[in-house]
Nucleic acid binder design. Structure first.
Length: 184
DNA sequence: ACCCGATAAGTGGTTACCTCA
DNA sequence: TCTGAGGTAACCACTTATCGG
């Protein structure tokens, strides 16, 4: 992004990686065949791709909906993150087949791959908005500066008006310079 | 020990498609 | 054949919870 507030004309350029949904996005009308039970909960922690970090968490008796287990946070390995990132660069959304293949490749559940892509899309969108916000702020500042310069220029012209009027023959009605010969 | 940012995962709403009465 | 209801799957926005620095 580049802003040139000092020039008389605005020179603003912005280069943001566009966030465009895949053509296979369901909201774009191209629905895919749903032959996979994406939301099937893996039976074991290994199925879910969980990696326990730190000490074993204690079991909370109040945590009934997790079977008395506290929620565990998966930590993706560098390799997993790298591969997910690579595929995200190629496509911001996955077909069920791609999701399945990626899950197998990364030894994660399809749900986890899906969640990662959802969160990644959200992060991408947030970053995009932050850049847009920054761009608009800079634009606003450049417009303020341009406005300030134009006001100074107008002030100078106003100050010149009586001088010009004394030299030139100016029509008091339309404020146009008239030919002195016409007045005769 | 506490705080905070990053992020995995949960929740609820919306939309599109499919099936079936 | 058309149609409306119900179910399902996928998405997004927002939130919560966890973990590491």
């Amino acid at each position: 992004m580049a802003v040139s507030p000092n020039s008389s004309s605005l020179e603003l350029t912005i280069s943001i990686q566009s966030f465009s949904p895949s053509p296979s996005h369901p909201l774009s009308g191209d629905h895919m065949v749903r032959d996979l039970d994406i939301n099937q909960t893996p039976k074991t922690e290994e199925d879910r791709g969980w990696i326990m970090i730190g000490t074993t968490p204690h079991i909370n008796e109040e945590d009934e909906n997790l079977g008395g287990r506290p929620r565990k946070k998966l930590r993706l390995t560098k390799e997993q993150s790298h591969l997910l990132e690579e595929s995200f660069i190629q496509n911001h959304t996955l077909t069920p087949k791609q999701k399945q293949e990626l899950a197998i490749l990364l030894k994660l559940s399809q749900r986890q791959v899906e969640v990662w892509f959802q969160n990644r899309r959200a992060r991408s969108k947030l970053k995009h908005r932050e850049m847009e916000c920054e761009y608009l702020k800079r634009w606003f500042e450049s417009l303020k500066e341009q406005n300030r310069r134009l006001q100074i220029e107008a002030e100078e012209l106003r100050a010149l008006k009586p001088v010009l009027a004394s030299v030139l023959s100016i029509c008091p009605l339309c404020e146009r310079v008239t030919n002195a010969a016409d007045n005769d």
